[in-house]
Amino acid sequence: METVAIPTKAKISLIAITKQYITPRTGQTTLAVSDVSLNIQQGEFLCIVGPSGCGKSTILSMIAGLTKPSSGTISMDGNAIHGPGRERGVVFQDYALFPWKTVRENIEFGPRFRDRAPLSTAARRELVDHYIELVSLNGSEDKYPHELSGGMRQRCAFARALANEPDVLLMDEPFAALDAQTRLILQEELLRIWGEELPRDKRKTVVFITHGIDEAVFLADRVAVMSNHPGQIKMEKPIGLPRPRNEGVRLTTDFQKLVDEIWQLIRHDAYEATIGKAGIKQA
């Protein structure tokens, strides 16, 4: 396949992306994403929020190369994306850990079996040890996923994506299945591992999908707010809160203001997505 060079400085760029699903059974078409254009810069932490069913997962899966857009182009570093590749790591919502592999074997899956430049045993061991340490899974290396708590599974999935050393991390509601406390802790962990103190060009580029507006504001450099029917980007909100961020940020009025502003934007859509049009009128 020829690679189309697209003149842009963005790390990842989506140009006029549309995605239509056709259900083969009924022949019915669903317009999941309509004319979305988005640029994501090197080292940027972008959060996407929006009501259920607005096409967030679809966008992420297209960036990952697992789904093809119906029209439009997605490129990374100026090269069009044609399929999944190790430079774009994905953390799935339900983690998708291999149940027959231990924590260690899950984490070394990419470095060991990937097509291009798999590592030697020794190099792999060192690398995997490093990431086990980084996500604090020491002592659980030889457990199977079903022997882990939800939070540990999440960290294992995260380490598996990181150990493949991608440039871009794509995360689809990675904390959705966790309890509130664990989620708060892992949010801070995520920022630490991402490397808040590092200069931009050393950081990984992150696309992070969430339902939690406060989670998005806490983590992101920029929040893209999506709307429903059809899935479109309604607004992009830069988050200027200083880094490194910690629990204290949540108490500041700036933080509260940003959360409230985004909530007002998607409130209507969210109600509509959940309880239907009739419900809104009553409320």
Binding site: L66, G83, D94, A96, F113, D115, N164
Partner: peptide, 13 residues
């Protein structure tokens, strides 16, 4: 299917 996708995005053939 997710497990196959997970392997694919790690660049596994």
């Amino acid at each position: 299917e997710r497990l196959i996708q997970a392997a694919k995005v790690l660049g596994v053939g």
